[in-house]
Design a protein around this nucleic acid. Structure first.
Length: 600
RNA sequence: UGCUCGAUGGUGUAAUGGUAGCACAAGCGACUCUGACUCGCUUUGUCUAGGUUCGAGUCCUAGUCGGGCAGCCA
């Protein structure tokens, strides 16, 4: 069980053109209630771009007292897998948990659409699981509609609006023409209804090899919209399906399955990304061709997320996984929800980000700094502070006796209304960060330098007396004097020095592995490269052996900490154990000083 | 050069015919036992040209530039 952080509320609902439309439709009483859906294909893990869509769809449901169905858009058995189904469920629950759980809808496990008769017409309805009854639930599956979809396809054929075509895939392609040139009618376009019906049934029975026939909508081969040039509705695929097993030998295509799935579920607003704009005419055509009994859903499109220094494409992320450029879909460097979670990014921060970036139809590139800001903002409020030294340099406080232990009170989180404290042990030997010492300090260096003073946070001010090196000139230790009058309760506790640094006692600390993550790509727009893999950041992961204050030994997986002056760190959910923690750096603290001129 | 969608500071977004605002970023300063946080200040914007209007980022026309579309993927 990992510690979840959903403390920060998601900010007030934004407004955007889609929410405006929803409000308008509600005012017009176009629908009884608002139903959206999030329809991932289980062919990869969900990423930060999906989070934008989830927050939009679930957010609209939440704001309007409606629901958002989680639906597997699983019409292509050759690319899909239960591993992905499981990860999608876990990631969506994580993202929505503590925020809008009541509006994320599942169906009863094993349920298939109810078949009803409305005004003499056969109708299919896929109901959500009743709330609070404790029945087992699962996501909606487009594949649960295969029977209903088949019936709709038969109905289309009967109405003369679809036909079985025998053209090969290559010929189908050639007949389609190109955007600026009309296509050509298939010779099978005029085939009789009965013949198409019989052929379609034999396709279903598995009598033909892949590609031998297809079911096509009869629309207009000369349409300027290529998606209206008799698009395929069904293809033959002799493949088993992760959810329906070996039952089907034909599978519907996206355009046919999606609009009808929306209809079966009573979706009102079917929100998708811009690349589907051209498909909207087909979406409407299919639904309008069937004389359906209930109000029809409508499709609205928004621009998907593009994030700086990030790849937001399941296909490309899959390549990183398959080629082992990363350790898996949940590698903390991945922009997947699993990766972000493992990295220590709170779900609330992802949600906040999704709300901050807005919803438009402009294809933009969001600065990754916006995301980093929401992560820091969330963690600053929620993360307990601890002291840790990543790259230790030994200090000997010469005026402390060996074995002497001075207790110090350290604040756990200064952002808390009533900050609590914990005890830290100050001993003769301590470690400080190597960055916090400079033998030849640059200008305005506030940290430890020869003859200089610095405060050990929560302890006292120390003065550097002597730098000890070995014969080769390598640093052995720094010998300092501790001014114990500057400790809490001491007469000079208020003495000011420019620098305060973090430290850990050499005898009261633990050794732990810490993984320092940096951005996975070296360029702002890796997707725009000829080959995005050529700009993978070779320094995106550095594993170090750090010295941590002893209380960190008990850190729970998923629990966020701020290592003071360094950044936010979270025990790795897979490899960290209580007693032997392994920390992932979620994100560094903002550093407005260390940046050398001209550096990144 | 078919169809389609779009264009507001460096980035992202708001303003629904009436004072161009917010966030991030950047810069300066204050505060500080985290060079963090917080606070204050500052820089920078309506693609172009016409038109409608008392008034246009918003409406109209034309242009420019950019995105998407020709999988038996979704």
């Amino acid at each position: 069980m990992t510690v979840e952080n959903n403390a920060a509320p998601t900010p007030a609902a934004p407004t955007d053109f889609i929410r405006d439309l929803v409000a308008q439709h509600l005012a017009e009483k176009r629908y009884d209630g608002i139903v959206t859906r999030f329809p991932p294909e289980p062919n990869g893990y969900l990423h930060i771009g999906h989070a934008k869509s989830i927050c939009l769809n679930v957010g609209i449901a939440l704001e309007n007292g409606g629901r958002c169905n989680l639906r597997m858009d699983d019409t292509n058995p050759t690319k899909e897998d239960v591993e992905y189904v499981d990860s999608i469920i876990a990631d969506v629950k994580w993202l929505v948990g503590g925020w809008a759980d009541a509006h994320l809808a599942f169906k009863s496990k094993g349920a298939t659409p109810e078949i009803r008769t409305i005004n003499g017409r056969t109708d299919y309805y896929a109901a959500p699981a009743p709330a609070g009854t404790g029945t087992a639930v699962e996501p909606f599956y487009a594949s649960d509609y295969f029977d209903a979809l088949y019936a709709c396809a038969v109905e289309l054929i009967r109405r003369g609006k679809a036909y079985v075509c025998d053209l090969s895939p290559e010929d189908t392609d050639a007949y389609r023409g190109s955007p600026d040139k009309p296509g050509k009618d298939s010779p099978f376009r005029t085939r009789g209804i009965e013949e198409s019906l019989a052929l379609f049934e034999r396709m279903k029975a598995g009598e033909f090899p892949n590609g031998a026939h297809s079911l096509r909508a009869k629309i207009d081969m000369a349409s300027p919209n290529v998606w209206l040039r008799d698009p395929l509705l069904y293809r033959i695929r002799h493949a088993d399906h992760h959810h329906t097993g070996s039952k089907w030998r034909i599978y519907p295509l996206y355009d046919f399955a999606h609009c009808l799935s929306d209809y079966f579920e009573g979706i009102t607003h079917s929100i998708c990304t811009l690349e589907f704009v051209d498909h909207r005419a087909l979406y409407d055509w299919i639904l309008e061709s069937l004389d359906l009994a209930r109000p029809l859903p409508h499709q609205y499109e928004f621009a998907k997320l593009n994030l700086g220094y990030t790849i937001v494409s399941k296909r490309k992320l899959l390549q990183l996984v398959q080629e082992k450029i990363v350790a898996g879909w949940d590698d903390p460097r991945m922009p997947t929800l699993s990766g972000l979670r493992r990295r220590g990014v709170p779900a609330a921060a992802v949600r906040h980000f999704a709300y901050n970036i807005g919803i438009t139809k402009f294809d933009s590139l969001t600065d990754v700094a916006v995301f980093e800001h929401t992560i820091r903002e969330n963690l600053n409020a929620s993360a307990q502070r601890r002291l840790a030294v990543l790259r230790p340099v030994k200090i000997v406080l010469t005026n402390l006796a060996p074995g002497e232990v001075l207790e110090c009170d350290a604040v756990n989180n200064p952002q808390d209304a009533q900050p609590s404290t914990r005890k830290l042990a100050l001993t003769r030997e301590v470690f400080i960060e190597s960055d916090d010492f400079a033998e030849v300090p640059p200008p305005k260096y506030f940290r430890l330098k020869p003859g200089g003073e610095v405060r050990l946070k929560y302890a006292c001010i120390i003065k550097l007396d002597e730098i000890v090196k070995d014969a080769s000139g390598a640093l052995i230790e720094l010998r300092c004097t501790a001014d114990l009058t500057t400790r809490a309760g001491g007469p000079n506790v208020d003495k000011k020095v420019k620098g305060t640094i973090h430290w850990v006692s050499a005898s009261h600390c633990i050794d732990a592995e810490v993984r320092l993550y940096d951005r996975l790509f070296t360029v702002p727009e890796p997707a725009a490269e000829e080959d995005f893999k050529t700009c993978v950041n070779p320094h995106s992961l550095e594993v170090i052996a750090a010295k941590l204050e002893t209380s960190l030994r008990e850190a729970q997986a998923g629990q966020p900490f701020q290592f003071e002056r360094l950044g936010y760190f979270t025990p790795d959910a897979k490899e960290s154990q209580v007693g032997k923690p392994v920390f992932n750096r979620t994100i560094s603290l903002k550093d407005t000083w260390a940046k050398p001129p001209g550096a990144k």
